[in-house]
Simulated assay, not measured.
Amino acid sequence: MTQDLRKELTDMVGPTHWNWLKPHIARDAVVFVDPHLDLVDVGVALTNDNVQSVQRWIGEQLITKPTREQLDAWGISGPTNQLQSLIVQPYVLVQEILASADSGSPI
């Protein structure tokens, strides 16, 4: 069951834009996921009610409500920002996409 859920959630991860996030921010449903966490892992933990993992991530501030500064930055950068999202009802998980160190460089 977990592998099916993982695949389903992986297929649901995609880029997102500020305008799409606005209504979810207004209803306080956006959760920021630190870029060093796997977005699908967080989605699986929330879906499976894995309280231990979620509480640890909250305690370590790896999953948080977006700060005013983050919201302002996302709004300013508009469609050029690098955000991905995953809907895990009732939340919208949002994560900044980190540029990989080797992106664009030939091997």
Rank of each mutant, 00 (worst) to 15 (best):
residue 2 T to G: 10
residue 86 L to M: 09
residue 2 T to H: 14
residue 73 A to T: 10
residue 28 D to C: 04
residue 15 P to A: 14
residue 41 D to T: 05
residue 10 T to M: 14
residue 52 Q to V: 14
residue 36 H to I: 10
residue 45 A to V: 12
residue 12 M to Y: 08
residue 85 S to I: 13
residue 80 T to Y: 11
residue 20 W to K: 07
residue 16 T to G: 03
residue 75 G to K: 03
residue 24 H to M: 05
residue 23 P to R: 02
residue 53 S to C: 00
residue 33 V to Q: 09
residue 41 D to F: 08
residue 80 T to K: 11
residue 88 V to A: 03
residue 20 W to D: 02
residue 42 V to I: 11
residue 76 I to S: 04
residue 51 V to R: 13
residue 72 D to A: 11
residue 42 V to Y: 06
residue 30 V to N: 01
residue 64 T to C: 03
residue 42 V to S: 06
residue 46 L to R: 05
residue 76 I to E: 12
residue 74 W to T: 02
residue 93 L to V: 04
residue 1 M to F: 13
residue 33 V to F: 04
residue 94 V to F: 00
residue 42 V to L: 04
residue 78 G to A: 00
residue 68 R to D: 05
residue 78 G to Y: 03
residue 57 W to N: 05
residue 103 S to M: 14
residue 19 N to R: 12
residue 26 A to E: 12
residue 40 V to W: 09
residue 105 S to D: 11
residue 103 S to P: 15
residue 69 E to W: 11
residue 65 K to A: 12
residue 7 K to I: 06
residue 85 S to A: 08
residue 52 Q to N: 12
residue 87 I to S: 10
residue 96 E to D: 11
residue 94 V to T: 00
residue 104 G to Q: 15
residue 105 S to N: 12
residue 69 E to L: 12
residue 84 Q to A: 05
residue 56 R to Y: 12
residue 93 L to A: 01
residue 56 R to Q: 06
residue 48 N to Q: 14
residue 23 P to F: 06
residue 23 P to W: 03
residue 88 V to I: 09
residue 33 V to L: 07
residue 38 D to Y: 02
residue 99 A to E: 15
residue 105 S to P: 08
residue 60 E to F: 13
residue 37 L to A: 00
residue 96 E to M: 10
